[in-house]
């Protein structure tokens, strides 16, 4: 069974339909990169997976379970209770374009907050695990700092450690390097590379073609709210079949 099953998902913002029947399966351990021009729906799709966005039709399952919905006896999807959705989200890590670290908490507290508050991990245990995670992203010496004292790249690495502290079975990355100065992109990509090598299932929205080429198992090309082409990066980059993929790659490479 795939870890993520996306089935004919439709999503509208008012009149605008941003997802027009997207289907996609992601296997456990797979690294999938979503590509596409801005407005193609890739970020929205990512945000639907952990129900930060509602969907209007179709379904999304993670580890065999709907996220954010229950299916009623009539076969229709209903919003599920906040507490239940929250518990499912706890196992899905997410890294945002703008880091979104908790500004009032230290780096260490950012990493321990959710394990302690959501999973009820004892503080001492959460702390020692957080320090290990911070060490693994190269930021153990910044544990006592506040987010505003760090560079963008450091903040994003803390954000990755924060998500990993929940021991997620799936990590979602929403343009994790787009808000970074060029010289800071490398350190974040390196962290993600090592995470991929460790076997984490990852769905990554990015414009970093080198990352897609080297790390992705599969690249998904989206346009106008639909998947128009997919395949291993070597194939998709060297011999794209869809004209819009060709145009996109010609622009970006």
């Amino acid at each position: 069974m795939p870890l993520v099953e996306i089935n004919n998902v439709h999503k509208r913002f008012g009149e605008l339909e941003v997802l027009k029947g997207v289907s996609l399966d992601v296997e456990a351990g797979e690294v999938v990169v979503l590509l596409g021009a801005s407005g193609s729906g890739k970020t929205t799709l990512l945000r639907c997976i952990n129900h930060l966005e509602t969907i209007h039709d179709g379904e999304i399952k993670v580890a065999g379970e709907l996220v954010g919905y229950t299916r009623g006896k009539d076969g229709k999807l209903r919003e599920e209770k906040d507490a239940i959705t929250s518990a499912k989200r706890a196992r899905i890590g997410m890294v945002f374009q703008r880091f979104n670290l908790f500004a009032h908490l230290t780096v260490l507290e950012n990493v321990t907050e959710a394990p302690v508050q959501v999973l009820r991990v004892p503080l001492a245990e959460a702390r020692s695990r957080a320090l290990d995670l911070l060490a693994s992203v190269g930021l153990k010496d910044k544990a006592g700092y506040y987010p505003h004292e760090l560079s963008g790249g450091q903040q994003q690495r803390v954000a990755i450690a924060r998500a990993l502290a929940m021991e997620p079975r799936l990590m979602l990355f929403d343009e994790p390097t787009s808000a970074l100065d060029p010289e800071l992109v490398g350190e974040v990509l390196e962290t993600m590379r090592r995470l991929a090598a460790s076997g984490m299932t990852m769905i990554v929205v990015t414009h970093e073609m080198s990352f897609a080429r080297e790390v992705a198992d599969r690249v998904i090309m989206m346009a106008d709210g639909q998947v128009i082409e997919e395949g291993p990066p070597a194939q998709l980059f060297s011999a794209p079949s869809h004209p819009r993929t060709k145009a996109f790659l010609a622009r970006i490479l």
Binding site: L52, S86, R89, L101, F102, A114, M166
Partner: peptide
């Protein structure tokens, strides 16, 4: 964004 991050980490509203 911080609220959203908190929700993504499994915190209830």
């Amino acid at each position: 964004g911080q609220r959203e991050a908190a929700r993504a980490l499994g915190m209830t509203k």
